[in-house]
């Protein structure tokens, strides 16, 4: 089927502001938006720039704003979108070129919540024991692929870019609720800061945007509750 693809373009060496460009492509209804972007890049305009790697929703490279929602280009099909498809970079992040945004700030926030197991006890000879029900508590937040779709869909983040954002909180949650971890206190201290969890207004944009189906708002509320529990 014929699809009209409107892509937001920005060449930092020539453009003073982003502009829209239209391309017409012949697409299979089962094709993904990533396939369309490749059709344009490989057959019409090689200067079109976007990140992608695995091509099946696990590496998190190709999150972008597609028909007004943050999604992975490799995980949304033409038949789910229709004949007119608009593609723009993730909102709220500095645009580097075309659909590529600067993720450095996003990853700096991720690093700020100490996203690694903290446990200074000497490990046993064999594995640390963890019951299936203990693991289940943080299973959902282990799915995060750091694509940035949630944080860049969050109105609280748009309003204040210092907000640590849903993705960083999800990754803090993954350790705070891991029975093997002993770093909850220091992470909760970081997240109780004025740019921590309290900036969440439970708008649920993040949950809609997450390509991994993580219940992000629930995770944020669980972290908030843990902070309250510790301070009362």
């Amino acid at each position: 089927m014929q699809v009209t693809l409107r892509i937001q373009r920005f060449d930092p060496e020539h453009d003073s502001a982003p502009r829209w460009q239209e391309y017409r492509v012949d697409a299979d209804p089962m094709a993904r938006v990533l396939d369309l972007l490749h059709l344009v890049k490989w057959e019409q305009d090689a200067s079109l720039t976007f990140r992608r790697s695995c091509g099946h929703g696990i590496c998190g490279s190709d999150a972008m704003l597609i028909n007004g929602r943050n999604r992975l280009a490799c995980k949304i099909r033409v038949d789910q979108l229709g004949r007119r498809i608009s593609v723009a970079p993730l909102p709220g992040l500095p645009v580097v070129k075309d659909l590529v945004v600067d993720m450095d700030g996003f990853f700096a926030k991720y690093r700020s919540v100490r996203p690694y197991l903290i446990n200074d006890q000497p490990p046993p000879v064999r594995e640390r024991r963890q019951l299936p029900q203990e693991r289940a508590v943080f299973d959902d937040t282990t799915k995060c692929i750091l694509c940035g779709a949630c944080t860049s869909s969050c109105p609280s983040f748009w309003a204040r870019s210092e907000y640590v954002g849903p993705a960083a909180i999800v990754n803090a949650h993954r350790f705070i609720f891991d029975s093997r971890d002993e770093g909850a206190a220091e992470r909760l201290a970081i997240l109780s800061d004025r740019d921590g969890v309290w900036r969440c207004r439970t708008i649920f944009n993040c949950v809609d945007a997450c390509p991994r189906g993580i219940n992000i708002t629930r995770a944020i509320l669980e972290v908030s509750a843990a902070i309250v529990e510790r301070t009362t």
Partner: peptide
Amino acid sequence: VIELEHLGLPFNRTPDGRI
């Protein structure tokens, strides 16, 4: 594999908590 577990990898578990 044991070291990966110590580094924090969330393996699926047996009912008694082993990998």
